[in-house]
Nucleic acid binder design. Structure first.
Length: 650
DNA sequence: GTGCGAGTATGA
DNA sequence: CATACTCGCACC
């Protein structure tokens, strides 16, 4: 008998200064059960705690007597080496701990499911050779598929033409990329932002790859179903995994591709510490595992644009001229606050053109009407040119705040109350609060088209699809039903309201939502039309009319660079008790040269401060923030301090 | 976080 | 000199 073996264990202990593996002796009696990736119980700081074995070694560097493993919870290797690397990379990117991130990556154990017999998963049947109806029609699209099939690791942002045709079929694009990768013998991970999209993707995967040839990983179906799907992937019995946010960490044997639909959706932001964004997780994963990476969408997020401009992603998109040929024609109807009663049929505040467009569309099929919900935080705008008013101090959009003497501008980010403001575009000093639209539109339109079937789809009552029959389909953004043969027309209402949020991302978000609606409409050659009701001069509306999310993202990124915001910079937010935040700002600033903003009050005895550096110094900034946490924890310093890196919402 | 050992305070 | 208590730190 040789020396007893040593297990390197990551202990479930989210203290920043203990964020590293610890060595334990494997008792003779447990030797057969211990495998890398299994769950164990160990004694740590006098208490019994859970952990994962990440490595089995013959000896330890530790010059003290090792404590023994207490118990092997399960021999199932649930934490694969590549996921260890991914979890470490994500924790480091977000100044978080391995323990916090691994909780997001490995679902809770479900014993009964683990002991149950293996379900046999048939291999997915890849598409026959030349069957790409979407991706291969794009410049570089065929090369992308070929690279995936050849075992290479291409990284791309595929900006789809928004149209209800194969060329604008996001599900098809994901399935084709998956098929190419599977055909080359590697595994695939397909990620979508929400349950409704997952249903659509699953349906197509059943059709294309066969029932049971893939698993769906989502927390929504309960712990047993989640763990079953996770195990199927971890055991290597299934090559294709579909899922939402948390599935970005799913173990897939011999991973060849991570593909994500609509990376701009806000559901990708994890609400638990350290708040990783699935777009970033996917990107880190492509790096760590050297696999393909594909962001598919109708829009282009500012973040993917930054990756494209860094040369890290290849842009795959059709030229603008080709897009306009294939996609619906988009027109603007200026919402010039029409006088009530101007349209006798409806007593409507809507422009007359809208009714004409709807009537024309209904003659050919269903018509989609996108109606934003009320309740966004409205930002102030220039009274003359209507561009968003920005804080002169930090560049964040200004909000209106009620005071004794009416309204005053306030910056919700840096807390400033600018006394004088001048429009950066036209020089005017006058501000206005944009009119907030009202959602009585459904009733109005219903009355205007009395003999028409009206379908309503909203967050509470989503409708998945509608037939080709003429119908007026009213939907809030994000839950538009799919029309089987494409909508004949779409009307996008209250554009200004969607644009008027006091949020840096308002424009990008509005364009993303509009384009998703446009993508449900028939192409120009089938007389598909889209009408947007809003200010024609607004940059975002212009981008929609030109169907040019890339040009928009380029300008958006340039703006962010000028204002010093992510993704052009790396930004961290420090929040907690004043003393702790002040000290942290002090230390990090001197250490990294970061530019501080704040601190400003942030609720009950809590303040927040912001630090920004150029991307090249990002790792140093995050490292310094982690270091501050380590020191604080080790010295048991007073007060609380939370760190957020590139938060989704500022 | 938790437990422990060193160092210091307190009292018989 | 014995016991009590706090502080600082290591935790495998």
């Amino acid at each position: 008998m040789g020396e007893p073996k040593v297990a390197r264990v990551v202990v479930d202990m989210p203290l920043p200064h203990l964020d590293r593996p610890f060595d334990y002796v494997i008792p003779e009696a447990l030797a057969a059960e211990v495998v890398p990736g299994c769950r164990v119980k160990v004694r740590f700081a006098g208490r019994q705690r859970d952990g994962f074995v990440i490595e089995v070694a013959n000896s330890s560097q530790v010059d003290r007597e090792l404590a023994p493993l207490l118990k092997v919870t399960s021999s199932e290797p649930v934490l694969k080496p590549e996921i260890v690397a991914l979890v470490r990379a994500v924790a480091d990117h977000y100044a978080g701990t391995f323990a916090d991130v691994v909780r997001l990556a490995v679902p809770p154990r479900h014993g009964i499911t683990e002991k149950a017999d293996l379900i046999k998963h048939p291999a997915p049947v890849p598409l026959a050779g030349e069957s790409s109806r979407c991706v291969a029609r794009y410049p570089h699209g065929a090369q992308l598929l070929a690279a995936l099939g050849d075992g290479r690791a291409p990284r791309a942002a595929l900006t789809l033409a928004p149209v209800a045709r194969p060329v604008g079929d996001w599900v098809g694009a994901l399935v084709e990329a998956a098929s190419a990768t599977l055909g080359g013998g590697r595994g695939v991970l397909l990620l979508v932002p929400d349950a409704a999209d997952l249903v659509r993707l699953e349906a197509r995967c059943v059709e294309v790859f066969g029932r049971g040839s893939f698993v769906t990983l989502t927390a929504e179906k309960g712990p047993a179903a989640r763990y079953r799907a996770f195990l199927a992937a971890a055991r290597g019995g299934v090559r294709l995994v579909l899922g939402t946010r948390a599935a970005a960490f799913a173990p897939v044997a011999d991973l060849g591709l991570v593909a994500m639909y609509d990376d701009g959706d806000d559901s990708w932001a994890e609400p638990r510490a350290p708040y990783p964004h699935a777009r970033v997780v996917a990107g880190l994963r492509a790096t760590v595992q050297h696999c393909g990476l594909l962001y598919v969408g109708y829009g282009r997020s500012t973040e993917t644009q930054a990756m494209v401009e860094r040369g890290w992603l290849t842009a795959v998109a059709a030229p603008l001229a080709a897009r306009r040929e294939e996609c619906p024609v988009v027109r603007v109807s200026n919402d010039a606050s029409p006088v009530a009663g101007r349209d006798p049929a409806a007593h409507s505040r809507l422009p007359h053109e809208v009714f004409t467009a709807i009537r024309a569309g209904l003659a050919a099929g269903p018509v989609l009407v996108q109606v934003p919900r009320a309740g966004y935080l409205a930002a102030l705008a220039c009274a003359r040119c209507r561009s968003v008013a920005r804080c002169p101090h930090c560049g964040h959009p200004l909000a209106g705040e009620r005071t004794e003497r009416g309204a005053a501008p306030v910056c919700r980010l840096c807390g400033g109350h600018p006394e004088s403001w001048h429009c950066g575009d036209c020089g005017s000093a006058e501000l206005r609060a944009p009119r907030v639209g009202v959602v009585r539109t459904a009733e109005e339109l219903g009355r205007a088209f009395p003999n028409t079937l009206v379908v309503q789809s909203s967050g509470d009552h989503p409708v998945a699809s509608v037939s080709d029959e003429p119908a007026l389909v009213l939907a809030t953004p994000g839950v538009e039903p799919v029309a089987v043969g494409g909508y004949a027309a779409a009307v996008l209402l209250d554009a200004e309201m969607l644009l008027a949020r006091a949020d840096l991302r308002a424009g990008e978000e509005a364009l993303r939502r509009w384009l998703s609606a446009v993508a449900l409409v028939r192409g120009a050659s089938d007389d598909g039309t889209v009408m947007v009701v809003g200010e024609a001069s607004a940059r975002t509306v212009q981008a929609l009319v030109r169907l040019d999310p890339v040009g928009f993202a380029e300008r958006e990124l340039a703006d962010r660079a000028e204002a010093g915001f992510p993704p052009a910079t790396r930004l961290i937010i420090l929040e907690g008790m004043a003393g702790a935040v002040d000290e942290a700002v002090q230390v990090i600033t001197t250490e990294t040269g970061a530019a501080p903003l704040g601190p400003v009050p942030a609720g009950e005895d809590s303040v927040r401060a912001m630090l920004r550096v150029p991307i090249s110094a990002g790792a140093a900034l995050v490292g310094a923030a982690k270091h501050v946490q380590v020191r604080r924890a080790a010295h048991k310093e007073e007060g609380s301090l939370r760190v957020r890196v590139d938060p989704a919402v500022l």
